[in-house]
Computed example of a mutant assay.
Amino acid sequence: MGVKGKLIALVEVKCGGHPILDFFHIHTHHIPNISPNIINHLEIHAGETVKVGSIVSCNYNEAGQKKSAKQVIEAIDLDKKSITWKVIEGDVLESYSSFTGILSCEHEWTTWTIEYEKKTEDIPEPLIQLGLLLDLTKDIERHLFKK
């Protein structure tokens, strides 16, 4: 059994958390246009908006390398302003037995939580992946201010 862990990071968003949540819930297909340095391609299988059970595939850049991931939407709670994704295929599963990302938005704060299980103890914490999520959030915020 691997080493389980959890990373949590909060980022202040001046536009408020609700518009950020809307982007990941309703306008997901626009993310590659907003943040092409991070997300190269994103596909929502069966629709343009994510819902529980939706499968989302993406190609992304991590430390100068092209990576891919396929995720299932495990939960969407609009009252709590949160979405949960679980990686089911992709590069991250080479190092981690399980990898789940949770976005929650409240007032001026967006919180990203990554829950993971390393395959071996010497695997590093997924700080690079957490940084990508924070950078992606800031890219979306900048886009919202351009409107």
Rank of each mutant, 00 (worst) to 15 (best):
I128N: 04
L21Q: 03
V11H: 05
E117K: 06
E106L: 05
F24Q: 03
K138L: 15
K67Q: 14
K70D: 09
E12D: 15
I140S: 03
L136Y: 06
N40Y: 06
K66W: 00
S82Q: 13
T111E: 15
S68C: 10
Q65K: 15
H45D: 07
L78T: 12
G64V: 09
D77S: 14
E48P: 00
I44W: 01
L133F: 12
L132R: 04
E48K: 11
S104E: 11
L42T: 05
N37M: 12
D135V: 01
V13H: 03
T28Q: 11
G101N: 05
C15R: 07
H25V: 12
P32G: 09
S82A: 08
D22Y: 04
P36A: 13
K6H: 09
G131H: 09
N59Y: 06
T113M: 13
H18R: 14
L103H: 01
K119R: 15
Y116T: 08
L93E: 09
T120L: 07
K146D: 13
I140C: 03
H18D: 11
S104Q: 12
D91Q: 07
W109N: 14
D22M: 12
Q129A: 12
L133K: 01
I26R: 13
D79L: 10
I44N: 05
E43I: 07
W112E: 03
A46Q: 13
W112T: 03
K14P: 02
G16E: 08
S95P: 00
S95I: 02
G131N: 15
S104R: 10
P124I: 04
E117H: 04
E48M: 04
L134T: 15
K4F: 11
Q71H: 14
E62W: 00
I34V: 15
I76S: 02
I128C: 04
G2M: 02
E141C: 09
I55E: 08
I140H: 01
L7S: 02
T84K: 14
T28I: 15
